[in-house]
Deep mutational scan, measured.
Amino acid sequence: MMAYMNPGPHYSVNALALSGPSVDLMHQAVPYPSAPRKQRRERTTFTRSQLEELEALFAKTQYPDVYAREEVALKINLPESRVQVWFKNRRAKCRQQRQQQKQQQQPPGGQAKARPAKRKAGTSPRPSTDVCPDPLGISDSYSPPLPGPSGSPTTAVATVSIWSPASESPLPEAQRAGLVASGPSLTSAPYAMTYAPASAFCSSPSAYGSPSSYFSGLDPYLSPMVPQLGGPALSPLSGPSVGPSLAQSPTSLSGQSYGAYSPVDSLEFKDPTGTWKFTYNPMDPLDYKDQSAWKFQIL
């Protein structure tokens, strides 16, 4: 009977010793046993002879290597770790002494450095960015050149030099007046198309007034536009458009034309069986010896 009264063996659950049927240790109110408190290391007290050895090595170098620390530790009968900690504390003490010396050398008012006064946003004049500046400075420094007289040679050079070769001289006033084509001369031969040399188009003023001019072949195509416009036809070669000034309004060009419109200028042929003959000019830059190549039959 006494065997049943004795408590059973101890069981360990999660490293906790349980005594038989008792489960009081598993209750929430019972805390787990805490780790033992780490003991504080005792402070090391250095003797005068030990301090002399350490100070002598510190005077040589503030960062001794492990071999120098072990050698000193053997002399003063201390572990190497204590020597390492002593050098660490000695360097910190040396830095603190240097900072105190710097503070003593500075004057009393030198510690508080005078800061520059901050400028207020409204006091300083700042350039306004509302208006974009002129990058080319046209509004201040540029002045347009004065327009020359209508009959000045410089204007003629600016007008005619675009179309004339570089080897030719500017046309005088008398020749510029001949550039304007007359109405009857352009409409006299509506079906004849003559190819003149390129030099005649640039230099010869008579080429624009003769039936064999460069633009005589364009007349049949330009004249039928007159009834559609409801007024006189516009002429690209009329009046002052080739003269001194090219800047004319469309209203000033509306009254200039080749001449009176005639039914002869239409595109319809009077004789459907007729042929169109292209007159060959020996001055043509295209060297075609066979003139029969310039004739064709309209079917």
Rank of each mutant, 00 (worst) to 15 (best):
N281S: 11
L54A: 13
G231Y: 14
S167W: 14
Y191R: 01
P107Q: 07
V160D: 00
P108M: 11
A198I: 11
Y288E: 03
F278D: 00
R69D: 14
L222N: 01
S203C: 11
R40H: 10
P236D: 01
V30W: 11
V131D: 06
G231Q: 00
P125N: 05
D134V: 07
T194F: 13
G137V: 08
S249M: 13
L218M: 02
S34I: 09
G151W: 13
L136R: 11
Y221V: 03
S49D: 08
E70N: 08
D284H: 13
T155P: 03
L78F: 13
V83N: 13
V30N: 07
K102P: 07
S169A: 04
P153G: 08
F46I: 12
G259W: 13
L237E: 00
P135H: 06
A117P: 05
G255A: 09
D130N: 05
T129N: 09
V157E: 01
P127Q: 10
S139V: 04
E70T: 10
I298D: 00
S262R: 15
S213P: 08
S223Y: 12
M283E: 00
L16D: 00
Q291K: 13
G183V: 05
S249Q: 04
S139Q: 04
L74Y: 05
P232N: 06
N6W: 15
F46W: 14
L57S: 13
G255P: 02
S210H: 10
L267H: 03
P272N: 04
A92W: 11
G8P: 03
D284G: 14
Q39K: 11
A174M: 09
F296M: 00
K289H: 03
D290H: 15
P227D: 01
L222D: 00
S164G: 01
R119H: 02
K88F: 12
A29I: 15
Y261G: 03
M193D: 00
R115V: 02
F278C: 00
G148K: 10
N6A: 11
P211D: 01
L222R: 08
P9K: 09
I162R: 01
P197T: 12
G110W: 03
S206F: 12
A189L: 13
E52M: 06
L218E: 00
I162Y: 01
A156F: 13
P240W: 15
L25Y: 04
S139D: 08
S164K: 06
P224H: 07
S212N: 04
G20S: 03
Q228E: 02
D219G: 15
T194Y: 14
W163H: 00
S254M: 10
V85C: 13
T44D: 12
A73F: 15
S141M: 03
S254T: 05
T154I: 14
Y208V: 04
S241Y: 13
M225D: 01
T45R: 09
P282M: 10
P205L: 14
Q105T: 03
K93V: 14
S210D: 02
